[in-house]
Each structure stands twice: as structure tokens, then as C-alpha cells.
Design a binder for these strands. Structure first.
Length: 462
DNA sequence: ATCGGCTCGCGCAA
DNA sequence: TGCGCGAAGCCGAT
């Protein structure tokens, strides 16, 4: 467990104290959560109860109904699973930009130590840096995202083939279920902050979201409801029905052979460890789930700003620079991409899948990104378009995988190929290739039906 | 249908 | 120092 922990400040533990605080930012779950387990272990050593705290603000960029709903849908089950363990639970929904932002500091005043998630991108990495300087109490961040802890990789890896043997060598140490000790002391005190939620009910989620000061023009995903129950349903469905044909059918979007677990992984409602244990022996799937996902975490941890072209390998940066002034034809504005208004029916369908379902099938997402590069005024504008579309519409966006997938389109973790306009030696993908390898027209029809009916026949009943 | 060339650089064997 | 091979391919020759 210790190799998952980062010690973020040098402040002492508080004594006396009322509890140990776990601040859940990215691993919004009770099961298979190393950070929560670490908080319980510390609490048992100090003979204190544990308080699980999570919050949701409306002040991060592109906050909207889709992201808010997904997170709030996780709350009822988190509360339900914490209660029998005797762990206290608080959820703070900040509805206005002006709402106080100091809840963590208030709760920390009575805590012996604060434990949170170690996560290399978006708000958690920024929060953890700024909070460390302000807390007057011991502050730990625990990596519960990766199976082989990020700490075990000593440097930024060049590609999948360089990290793969390192992960394989260490995997036997970490590929085992997390057994969390039960807390010895129950959390029985009066809630330290009246007015905060101790749970929410499913029917009140829409009302709470509507009351938030956020963008209400992006509705919840048609296909992926949030929450632990939905996450487990997707896992069971995948293992029972699709894992057998995954290796064969994963690159055929209309075959629906993939796990669709990325939203639940992103919001931390399920852990990759639980998924890997359930998928034992499925090499092709575990390659994606472990090797490529943990390569993405390694990249984001080592790159100061993961969504920047400066992080590309030298050959990719040089060849893109050489082709930066190449003529783009056709050439679209970001707005045309947002509106799915290109000449290419496959590209438009992929963009509509993003808008309706909240993610694009992995194989078409590569094509989607390559074409944004091909048809944008500049490489930088293409990057910004891809990031922005994910920020607004993707239920698996702002994840290490997001930035790595996007930068892969520009050559990250890839190799050079034959030189051509706009891309230089960066790998190119063509509509003809997609037609050769996948059922393009059937996919376009599927997405048209999704758009017209407003219902996804592939949505699991949760 | 299948195959080779395109092109760079990491990591390991020697 | 040399060599094999790699995050999901394309294209033209056979």
C-alpha cells in the first residue's frame, strides 16, 4: 500500500482530532478504493472514525447537466455502501459560483490527517498542489487509478513497447483484490456541516442539476447513466456477453463488443483493478485496460501540460512543423466541427455519437481525430477543437486516456510513416480504410436512428 | 488478396 | 555499434 502514497506536505497529524477525512475527488467509490482503504488504516491506528467527503462545483470550465448528472447518480449508492461500514458521508453541491469554497478546510480542522486521490490531470492535480500549501495537517494522496502504481515507473515512457515489459514484471504484485480492513470506530458524531447532503435520491437529481449555475444545453448521455450500479451492470454484461468476441470484434463499432466502461473508470465509480480481475486471461482486453491506460497515466504524470503539442516526440514535432503551412482542403472552423457539419457522413456520425452518447467508439475516435487534424486551419486549432469537444460532451473526457488518445493522433506513442501533406510522417487514416475494415453505412444508420428516436437500443437497463 | 516500402528511435544484445 | 520492431495504415505493385 505504501508505494501508492504520496506525502504532499510536512504538516503534522492533528491531535486530538475527531476523524480521518477522505476527500474523494476522482475515485468516487467505496469498493476497491486504495485511498479510502489507506484512510481507514490510518484511522484504525489512531482509533478514530472515517469521514468520506466529496464535492461538486459549478465553476470548472464547461460544467453542464451531463457531467453533473453522472456524478450525482453515483451518490445514492456511495451513501448506501458506506452506511453499514460505519463511515460518515458528506456530499457538498455548490450551486452558485459565489458559494463558499472552503468546505475542505472546515472539515480538515477536525481531522487528524487528510487523504485524497493522486490523479495526474484536470482539477485533482491542480487542487492537490494548491491545497498542500494551505492545509495545516498531514495530507496524503493515494494512487487508486492504476494497477501498477504510477510511482513504480521511474520516467516518461516512450511508447507501449517500453512500458509493457515493466508492467508485466510488476503485475503479479498488484493484480489481487484490495481487502479493506473495516473501520474499528463508527462515525456517530453529529454532522459537522449542516446543510450538506448525506445522500440524494434518484428522483431529486434532475431538480438539483437544474438548480445549478451551469450550462443546461448539454443533456445527460442517452446511453450511459452514472453510478456504481450502472458500472457493475456494464461490467457483468461485458464479461458475460462480449469478452469472448472482444479480440475479434472490438474494431467493428456496430458489433458493440467493447466494454463501455470508460465513463465509469473516468469518474472512478469502478476501478481498473476490479475489471482486470473479472477479465482474467483476456489478453487483448487487458492490454487496453492495463498497458495502454497506464501508459496514459504515465504520460500525464510526466508532462507538465498534457494537452500541448510540445510533448510530442522530436520526429513528430519536426514533421508537423514542416507541414504546418500546407493547404487544408476542405477546411472547417471549430463551430462546424461542433455542429457535425462536414462533408463526411462518417465523421458527422462520429461527432453525433459524441453529442448523444457522450463518447465515440474507440476505433472511429481515431478517425475522428485524424480528420480534425486534416481539416483544421492549424495543428494547434485541431488540438483545441478535440480537447474542447471532449470537455463539453464526453462522459469519459478530461481523463489521462483523453489526452493520450488525442495526442496519439499527432504521433505520440506512435512511429513515423510515409510522408504526406498536413500530417508529414504522422500516421494517416482514410475513409476508404474505414470502409474496408468496418461497416460504415450501418454505423451511420445506427447514429441517425439514435438522433431521430432519442433512444439508444443498446443502452443497458440499470 | 497479399506484400513490401515508407521512416525514426528506443532498448537490448553484443 | 547494430538490429529488431513498434497504439489501431496507406498505397501501389503483383
Amino acid at each position: 500500500m505504501e508505494d501508492r502514497v504520496r506525502y504532499l506536505n510536512e504538516a503534522p497529524m492533528r491531535s486530538p482530532a475527531k476523524y480521518v477525512l477522505y476527500w474523494s475527488q476522482m475515485n468516487r467509490r467505496v469498493d476497491s478504493n486504495h485511498a479510502l482503504a489507506w484512510a481507514v488504516q490510518l484511522a484504525n491506528g489512531l482509533d478514530l472514525p472515517v469521514l468520506f467527503y466529496e464535492g461538486l462545483t459549478c465553476s470548472y470550465p464547461d460544467a453542464n447537466d451531463r457531467h453533473h448528472t453522472f456524478i450525482l447518480q453515483g451518490v445514492p449508492e456511495t451513501a448506501r455502501r458506506l452506511a453499514p461500514l460505519g463511515i460518515g458521508y458528506l456530499f457538498y453541491l455548490r450551486r452558485k459560483h459565489s458559494d463558499p469554497n472552503d468546505m475542505l478546510y472546515r472539515l480538515a480542522k477536525d481531522s487528524a490527517v487528510v487523504v485524497t486521490d493522486d490523479y495526474p490531470v484536470f482539477v485533482a492535480s491542480v487542487h492537490n498542489r494548491s491545497v498542500a500549501g494551505k492545509l495545516d495537517v498531514t495530507f496524503h494522496a493515494v494512487d487508486s487509478s492504476c494497477i501498477v502504481p504510477m510511482n513504480r515507473m521511474e520516467k516518461r515512457e516512450y511508447a507501449a513497447y517500453t512500458i509493457r515489459p515493466k508492467i508485466r514484471r510488476l503485475l503479479f504484485e498488484y493484480l489481487r483484490p484490495l481487502e479493506m480492513a473495516g473501520p474499528r470506530r463508527r462515525f456517530t458524531q453529529p454532522l459537522p456541516c449542516p446543510g450538506l447532503h448525506t445522500t440524494v435520491t434518484e428522483p431529486e437529481i434532475a431538480r438539483l442539476v437544474a438548480a445549478c449555475d451551469i450550462d443546461h444545453n448539454v443533456p445527460p448521455s442517452l446511453s450511459y447513466p452514472g453510478g456504481r450500479v450502472a458500472a457493475e451492470k456494464h461490467l457483468r454484461h461485458f464479461i458475460g456477453r462480449n469478452l469472448r468476441r472482444y479480440a475479434e470484434d472490438r474494431n467493428e463499432p456496430t458489433a458493440h463488443a467493447t466494454s463501455n466502461l470508460s465513463p465509469y473508470l473516468h469518474y472512478g465509480q469502478i476501478s481498473s483493478l476490479e475489471i482486470a480481475l473479472a477479465a482474467k486471461g483476456a489478453e487483448e482486453f487487458l492490454e487496453e485496460l492495463i498497458v495502454r491506460r497506464e501508459l496514459a497515466f504515465n504520460y500525464c504524470r510526466c508532462a507538465a501540460k498534457p494537452d500541448a503539442l510540445e510533448n510530442l516526440p522530436a520526429w513528430a514535432a519536426a514533421t508537423l512543423h514542416k507541414h504546418s503551412k500546407d493547404r487544408r482542403d476542405p477546411c472547417y472552423t471549430p463551430e462546424q466541427f461542433f455542429e457535425a457539419a462536414t462533408h463526411d457522413a462518417l465523421w458527422n456520425a462520429a461527432q453525433k455519437e459524441m453529442r448523444l452518447r457522450g463518447k465515440i467508439h474507440g476505433y472511429y475516435r481515431m478517425y475522428w481525430g485524424k480528420k480534425i487534424i486534416e481539416w483544421s486551419r492549424t495543428h494547434q486549432e485541431a488540438l483545441e477543437t478535440m480537447v474542447r469537444i471532449h470537455d463539453v460532451w464526453a462522459v469519459d473526457g478530461r481523463d489521462p486516456n483523453t489526452y493520450t488518445n488525442i495526442l496519439w493522433c499527432f504521433g505520440l506513442h506512435d512511429r513515423p510513416w510515409q510522408e504526406r501533406p498536413v500530417f508529414g510522417m504522422v500516421r494517416y487514416m482514410s475513409l476508404e480504410g474505414m470502409r474496408r475494415k468496418t461497416q460504415v453505412d450501418a454505423y451511420i444508420r445506427e447514429i441517425e436512428h439514435l438522433e431521430q428516436s432519442g433512444k439508444d437500443p443498446f443502452r443497458l437497463v440499470c
